[in-house]
């Protein structure tokens, strides 16, 4: 097994994570805005950064991009420190921080040229390529002040992708977009993450969006990491999924199931005639056999999937999200 410099076992094919935060803190005066935040983002991942109002998401993102100073800890991008090796680290990053802002009196093309002149390797061909990728051809020579927000978002992604970054950081990318724009954005991001193999970090207040877009979420509150988990794979970190078993005779079913090892009855619901149990995959056959042995009819077994929103409220104690 290969190991990384830190001596930990290497993951994802031994690659250094594209983004690595280690004990990153930001203090202003005596106030700690971000407190020892650590997480990684790897190649091909789309990671959501979630947190209620004032949790420190934007502050964290601004530290990752060098816009504000890191008080303690370090951010490494593809192994380069944003603190001590800024130019080599930031060259790997494309970002939109908050709204995509451009010089309003210039055309979209002129704005892209501005970005291109700040890098060493962007050619006319590459500019044409990102223009085509984001479907900007028609609006290209219009002044940016005439752009809709959706167009500005696309132009924002285009400038972020110009220099072929390894990491794309998007702060609230669907803010103010209409449903069609949101879907479009989601599709672009998935396309980019999977086809170009770059890592994406997205902060958003639209939890359902994050759920549909991201492969993993990092939840922070009051500047601290609350939880970090994969999306879509309910088994991870949850060895006994919660199941709803609908039966004909509720009382008997409850008695039968309570006697089984490895199955925990959480509650019964009279109205739906459902027993809510926690049971590992391996216990399923036992569970069904026991019910059938007692001649109890089973109508339905389904997993209760909490939406990300439910979980989010649970993690963060019901604070308002922003």
């Amino acid at each position: 097994m290969t190991t990384t410099q830190s001596g930990k076992p290497a993951q994802a094919g031994g690659e250094e994570p594209v983004l690595r935060l280690r004990d990153v803190s930001k203090t202003i005066g005596r106030k700690t805005i971000v407190d020892k935040l650590s997480f990684d983002v790897r190649r091909g991942e789309i990671v959501g950064l979630l947190g209620p109002n004032g949790a420190g998401k934007t502050t964290a993102i601004r530290m990752m991009t060098g816009l504000i100073k890191i008080s303690e800890g370090d951010v490494r991008i593809a192994g380069r420190s944003i603190r001590s090796d800024f130019k080599d680290a930031i060259v790997q990053v494309g970002a939109i921080i908050e709204n995509p802002e451009f010089y309003p009196y210039m055309s979209g093309y002129d704005n892209l040229k501005q970005a291109a002149r700040m890098t060493d390797s962007v050619t006319e061909e590459r500019i044409a390529e990102v223009i085509a990728l984001l479907g900007l051809q028609e609006a290209l020579h219009k002044k940016v002040k005439a752009y809709s927000l959706g167009m500005r978002q696309r132009l924002g992604i285009a400038q972020a992708l110009l220099d072929r970054p390894k990491l794309l950081i998007l702060d609230e990318p669907t803010n103010g977009l209409d449903p069609a724009g949101i879907r479009e954005m989601r599709d672009y991001l998935k396309k980019i993450a999977f086809s170009e193999g770059i890592a994406v970090l997205v902060s958003s207040h639209l939890l359902s969006e994050i759920e549909q877009m991201c492969t993993r979420v990092v939840v922070i509150q009051s500047g601290r990491l609350v939880t970090e988990r994969a999306i879509g794979a309910s088994g991870i970190g949850q060895e006994r999924p919660e199941l709803r078993v609908r039966v004909d005779r509720l009382g008997e079913a409850k008695q039968v199931l309570e006697q089984l090892d490895g199955v925990e009855v959480k509650e019964t619901r009279e109205a739906e005639r459902e027993v809510i149990v926690l049971a590992a995959d391996g216990e399923m056959t036992t569970l069904i056999d026991a019910l059938r042995g007692a001649d109890i009819a089973i109508y339905r077994i389904s997993e209760t999937k909490k939406s990300l929103e439910d979980e989010f409220l649970q993690w963060t104690g019901g604070n308002q999200i922003a």
């Binding site: 060098g66 970002a95 700040m118």
Partner: peptide, 14 residues
């Protein structure tokens, strides 16, 4: 004022 300072300072330029 335009917010373009973010655009300007997240490039590989000191």
């Amino acid at each position: 004022a335009q917010g373009t300072i973010k655009f300007l300072l997240i490039r590989s330029r000191s």
